[in-house]
């Protein structure tokens, strides 16, 4: 689901729960519904409808959920000085990610004018992309939002101890049934192991990264994160993990960090004030997670953390 495996663990040690089937059916329906609405890969999705109507003069009506996600994307666009831009997906056309080739300058020149959230004609109940070929892509936030929705539904079912993993992002509800925090490993991009393990209670950890640096330019490996202003890959952190109460905001902060250079990414993470871990482009690991004092100040719901490697 949502571009990766989904895993849900419900711990019934503290509070019994045996109504699994209706719950799983409801969760599956919820995820399917989100995918149907927001996937750019499905031609019948709301996103595809909006994109198809680009430049046609026809606006698309949207509901509160969609407009809220667009508002959130707009806030993130403004806060990141335009680096996080849901209209930047069109730039992918100019790069051959599969074969690691360079961009076609002609295609880049064609795509760049179609990028810019500020170009979008957007009201709370309708959206219209004014240029033919423009497109929006909520892929940068929908997976994390889906994890939050699943967590909310599980909470509403009365479950007080659960773990949800959706394509690499994790939300935990309460602690484990034995009262101890959940132990969540943050994946090491260079191995199958984890960079470190965090102990979480009622929190989410989202990771964004450039694990596969397939584009080579002047001998350097470049990321698949593209700067919407230049169309060029960003030479930023290899991976960033952020912890917050919501997976969506954690993921958004991590994604924007990956769109910045190492030093700007660190400043951004510090501005957000959430616990974070970053592997810089040179491979050096820096974080606030292994410092109990700064971690405590930044998110008191999280417990102490231990290095696992």
């Amino acid at each position: 689901m949502m571009g990766g495996p989904a895993c849900i663990v419900i711990d019934t040690a503290k509070r019994p729960f045996d109504n699994y089937e209706p719950l799983l059916d409801a969760l599956l329906a919820e995820l399917t519904c989100l995918e149907t609405r927001y996937s750019r890969f499905r031609t019948d999705s709301l996103i595809s409808t909006i994109n198809r109507r680009a430049g046609s003069g026809i606006q698309t009506e949207i509901d509160t959920e969609m407009s809220t996600l667009l508002n959130f994307a707009g806030e993130l666009w403004a806060a990141s000085d335009g680096l996080f831009d849901i209209t930047s997906g069109v730039l992918r056309k100019a790069w051959d990610f599969q074969r690691g080739g360079n961009a076609s300058p002609t295609q880049l020149a064609e795509c760049l004018p179609k990028v810019g959230w500020d170009l979008v004609e957007y009201k709370n109940d309708a959206i219209y992309l004014p240029l033919q070929g423009m497109q929006i892509d909520l892929g940068g936030i929908v997976k994390e939002y889906a994890a939050d929705c699943v967590a909310a539904s599980i909470r509403e079912a009365g479950i007080t101890s659960a773990l949800i993993e959706l394509a690499g992002d994790v939300v935990v509800i309460g602690g484990q049934g034995n009262g101890k925090p959940w132990q969540i490993g943050i994946r090491d991009p260079d191995s199958s192991g984890s960079l470190l393990t965090v102990s979480l209670q009622d929190a989410a950890v989202a990771t964004s990264g450039n694990y596969a640096r397939t584009i080579k330019h002047n001998g350097r490996a470049l990321s698949h994160f593209l700067n919407p202003r230049t169309g060029w890959p960003v030479n930023g952190p290899i991976t960033v993990s952020v912890l917050d109460q919501r997976c969506l905001t954690a993921g958004a902060i991590a994604t924007v960090a990956c769109l910045k250079t190492d030093s700007h990414a660190q400043a951004w993470l510090e501005e957000a004030g959430l616990p974070w871990l970053m592997m810089k482009s040179c491979g050096t690991l820096i974080d606030t997670l292994t410092n109990p004092v700064s971690q405590r100040e930044s998110l008191t719901s999280l417990q102490t953390l231990q290095l696992s490697h």
Partner: peptide, 17 residues
């Protein structure tokens, strides 16, 4: 905890999740 997170969080407050 920070102004940035308040701003982002406020944008989401209406969602049931």
């Amino acid at each position: 905890r920070s102004r940035l997170m308040r701003r982002l969080g406020n944008a989401l407050a209406v969602l049931p999740a």
